[in-house]
Write a protein that binds this DNA or RNA. Structure first.
Lengths: 193, 193
DNA sequence: GTCTATAGGTGGATAGAC
DNA sequence: GTCTATCCACCTATAGAC
């Protein structure tokens, strides 16, 4: 149990708790005190791991990004067809919402204007990577005749994420899971997936 | 210049400034001090018009609601066909985004969990009324053969608002006006509008 | 790595003079 | 209706002991 391991472990716990808080309340609506209470350490202790809240925020986005990329790589490795890949992608969102959370980066997108520059940049990279993966799958799927849609795959990718994030956001306040499910069914049907 | 007129005038100015702040920063991210500075009055003076921030928030939503309803009623009175009505509806969002704002209620939906109960209720009424109008137009349009879509008109209405809000939100942080325009073009094309 | 203690700032809100 | 003055809660962040 050397210090590195311990530090890493605590950092991970902090990120875990903070992420849930962002997904449910938003980045500006939670405080170090909230994390401290949940983790039963003091406020000051958190600043050892993440000196400023901006550092914590960047850490959150980069970890979220890394995890999603791993998930997407897993979907790629599964050898599934394009249609199934899209369905798996949508399932990621569905699972998050079922856990009463908002997509973290969707929440941060709403708060974008108030976020520290480094967080804005990290968020930009996240959406960039996501769109790239989606566009690739869409392009491949259309070529093979598994999917159908008009316009460029890049544009369709952005439309998809926008609609998913929006449906998710409104489902949380008005419409619930049923609203989100209806939206995803429509999107998938539209694509022929 | 009696007091009533003056009061109303100041209240309106407060609401005007506050609304812009909500649309750009969010409800939790602005303070009475921001409004006071912009209006060049003191912080305390604002509390005369809106005792608590929750009061201000409810006032914002109800005014926003009233205004949108008037706009929708205007569209109804125009005698336009269903397709043109939908296009006019979409144009409302487009104009807001062009002014570098987010739809106020979309922003509030993202912050929903952190809002005072009275604001949540007001927001609920807003989305309810909006969906009702949209569903009515969609239903009418489909009957007359001006619009085409699968599923119920109520469900399609919720899908539309969700996609518009989501596209708007992501356009503000990643993709800009082009992204939003692409989304609306796709949605309208899908409807045959 | 975590603690106590505290600084320095900002938030919403109220009392009471004018 | 607007002002000054003030309260109190909470926020992020730091210094320094352990």
């Amino acid at each position: 149990m050397d210090q590195q391991v311990n530090k890493k472990h605590t950092s991970q716990q902090i990120l875990e708790i903070a992420q849930r808080l962002v997904q449910t309340l938003g980045f500006n609506a939670f405080s170090y005190a909230d994390i401290a209470k949940a983790l039963r350490v003091t406020n000051a202790s958190l600043h050892y791991h993440f000196p400023t809240k901006a550092d914590l925020g960047v850490g959150l986005i980069e970890r979220y990004d890394r995890r999603i990329q791993e998930t997407l790589a897993g979907i790629d490795r599964s050898g599934a067809g394009a249609a199934e890949k899209i369905r798996a992608y949508v399932r990621i969102y569905t699972d998050v919402l079922r856990d009463d959370r908002m997509c973290m980066c969707g929440m941060l997108a709403a708060e974008f204007a108030t976020l520290p520059k480094p967080m804005q940049s990290a968020l930009d990279r996240y959406f960039e990577q996501n769109d790239r993966w989606l566009a690739m799958v869409l392009e491949e799927g259309r070529k093979k005749g598994e999917l159908k849609f008009s316009g460029s795959s890049a544009e369709m990718a952005q439309f998809l994420t926008g609609s998913l994030e929006g449906a998710m956001m409104l489902a949380r306040s008005h419409g619930g899971m049923a609203r989100f499910d209806a939206a995803t069914r429509r999107l998938l049907a539209e694509l022929g997936a």
